[in-house]
Design a binder for these strands. Sequence first.
DNA 1: TTTTGCGTTAACAAAATTGTTAGATAAAAT
DNA 2: ATTTTATCTAACAATTTTGTTAACGCAAAA
Lengths: 208, 208
Amino acid sequence: MIEQEKISKEQLILEAAEQEFFIKGYDGARTTSIAQRAGVTHAMLHYYYRTKEQLFERIIEKYAKTIAETMLAAMGNPTMPIVERLKDGVSAHFDLVATNPLLPRFFLNEIIARPERYNLLYDKIKSIAGVLFASMQCEIDAAAERGEMERVDIRMLLMSILSLNIFPFIIHDFAQPVMGDLMANREQFIQQRKAENVEIIMRRIKKM
Amino acid sequence: MIEQEKISKEQLILEAAEQEFFIKGYDGARTTSIAQRAGVTHAMLHYYYRTKEQLFERIIEKYAKTIAETMLAAMGNPTMPIVERLKDGVSAHFDLVATNPLLPRFFLNEIIARPERYNLLYDKIKSIAGVLFASMQCEIDAAAERGEMERVDIRMLLMSILSLNIFPFIIHDFAQPVMGDLMANREQFIQQRKAENVEIIMRRIKKM
DNA sequence: TTTTGCGTTAACAAAATTGTTAGATAAAAT
DNA sequence: ATTTTATCTAACAATTTTGTTAACGCAAAA
């Protein structure tokens, strides 16, 4: 046979499942439509992955690390001075979300609908966050003392960053037709939006 | 019989369905668990509402107006001067979201999973938004000309407002255990968060 | 008192969705 | 070439979820 691009069906099914789960969630996704999207019969899906549940697990495993990062990356690089660390954190976090734009909505929906399922991942996020909050708040207080920035609660600030960086991707498809030309060029819009978010956060912490 | 609070089963089912649909979405909700939550057999659900679909419709109808408002209310009162209009808009919009904290996530999920279904509602939002964008941008440009505020794109600004006002409610249950005492008292947290969002937006448009 | 109609239940039926299997086909190994 | 192994299909089976119905009770109307 000719040297064809041999993307295995196993892989095709996984990719189709990813899209289907990300858009419709676990409950909304149908094994048959996943199979259809992958161009195989649904028997193949069960042959390779046995159950819908196991197929889903595979996807969660694949993204667990990215999920945790997406919840934490806004805290930036601990070695930088706090103001730059925050500026850099917003930017880096935005890029991370932009690389996996469907992931946050998917994960938040899943954890709301079936929290038990994600206890391990969740505990991990919690413990890391707890430690980082404390040290960042400390640095912020010190910088505020020196008059370098406004004194703010790091938790509030991080919630703002997550909101600004994640929500535009949640609302993306909904907003696009409403926004005229603003979102016509996706790449360009994403760059603008990132700059806007950095600007907002920098203004928020600027000493006035 | 004693003067009991006679909440009809019909009503109980509707309320149970609301919760179930809001948390799990159309696909995740089960007619049997809706019925269970309402304390009736699932036959009653079909007796009153015939199908899951029709029950769902009833809830969409009930909230259609609120949904549209939630997407638009951030634009505030057209009679106010633009800076105050925005300040007031952020605040009023936040309150609206806080009154129906589960609604935005629910609606966004639904419209992403099955867009066809919401064409009417969506078209309505689009047409209203289009007009308001133009007139608000005009006022912003004028105010900026007069040095009263920074010149900004109203669409970007509104996306920021929606992000800040809606996302905290999406992430609420997830964030609460991570945030230490910050979210321990819900009412207090909501007030703080509202003030924070107003502050962020005001700083964003402040002339510098 | 009888009738009428609503609310209710339990059992059943239908449909949708997930999961299995026996065997066909092709590819790889011996 | 033959055995073995992996891939695949179609038909079927099981399960879950939704929807229906027949029969019963009960309260209000006739």
